[in-house]
């Protein structure tokens, strides 16, 4: 690991102030992606701003219409939250299936979204449920937030403070996981949201995306049968030792149908 300076932020405001003027400052949430990348020297920030003590970034609120989750809320806390289980059971289940128990005890929703790993689970939930990412500067709708592999709309130094999910009529997330890393080879979230039917896919290779043809078919008829004939092109999906692009395209179809059936 390259040397860095560590700063403890007491609040969200404190964190945003601390990062100003740092040559290559980064926020430290759970560190489950960042520390691993720093150990491999894939990432070498000059300064880390530790968010752990910023209690205003933690916690879950639900008012029946919207579930709002603070950026520093761990995957384990989202999975175990009675409010999330009641309002958006698919989201609680998704959080409970990220990585393994030790990772879920530390990793956070804010870190997962800022990182935007192309095989991560939360991006599928945020995009598929049409959530809004709140930062210290603005509110960014999911459709504007994800910008491809490890890229997001976040500007340098911009801090995710919370994510708000409109409660869907129904939703389900299905992941076909890599048994070793537990990341998605393909994961599909299908939802009937206040803004219409949405289908979001993660694991494709270059970042989470929506499947417009499936959404149109589902808007007319919410059933697995309605999307059986929607062809998902393999172009744009990645081929690696876990599966070819054609295999991934096939998985998108199968998992989307299962997700729709599971969310019936």
């Amino acid at each position: 690991m390259h040397p860095f300076e560590l700063h403890k932020a007491a609040s969200a405001g404190d964190a945003a102030a601390l990062i100003v003027g740092k040559a290559d400052g980064k926020y430290l949430a759970g560190g489950q992606s960042l520390i691993a990348a720093m150990k491999l020297r894939l990432n070498a920030p000059s300064d880390l701003i530790d968010l752990a003590a910023a209690s205003d970034l933690k916690g879950i609120k639900s008012d029946g219409k919207t579930v709002t989750i603070g950026a520093m809320t761990t995957h384990a806390d989202v999975a175990a939250s009675a409010d999330v289980q009641k309002a958006i059971p698919a989201l609680a289940a998704l959080a409970g299936d990220i990585g393994d128990r030790q990772i879920r005890n530390v990793g956070t929703i804010g870190g997962a979204l800022a990182n935007n790993d192309p095989a991560a689970d939360y991006p599928a939930a945020v995009l598929g449920l049409g959530a809004t990412v709140h930062t210290n500067k603005r509110a960014i709708h999911a459709d504007e937030f994800f910008r491809g592999m490890y890229e997001t709309a976040l500007e340098s130094g911009e801090l995710i403070t919370a994510v708000s999910f409109p409660v869907p009529q129904r939703a389900a997330y299905l992941k076909f996981k890599n048994p070793a890393s537990r990341f998605a080879i393909i994961g599909v979230l299908a939802a009937q949201t206040p803004a219409g039917a949405r289908v979001a896919v993660t694991g494709g290779g270059s970042g989470v995306f929506r499947v417009a043809d499936m959404e149109r078919a589902l808007a007319a008829n919410w059933s697995a049968a309605a999307i059986t004939h929607v062809k998902v092109p393999a172009s744009g999906l990645s081929s690696d030792l876990h599966g070819s692009a054609e295999y991934r395209a096939h998985l998108v179809g199968v998992l989307a149908q299962r997700a729709v059936a599971a969310a019936a």
Binding site: L28, G31, Q32, A52, A76, Q102, V106
Partner: peptide, 13 residues
Amino acid sequence: GRAVKSCNLLAAQ
């Protein structure tokens, strides 16, 4: 009280 992987955490955390 929470199980964590200590190889992926800073002592400072």
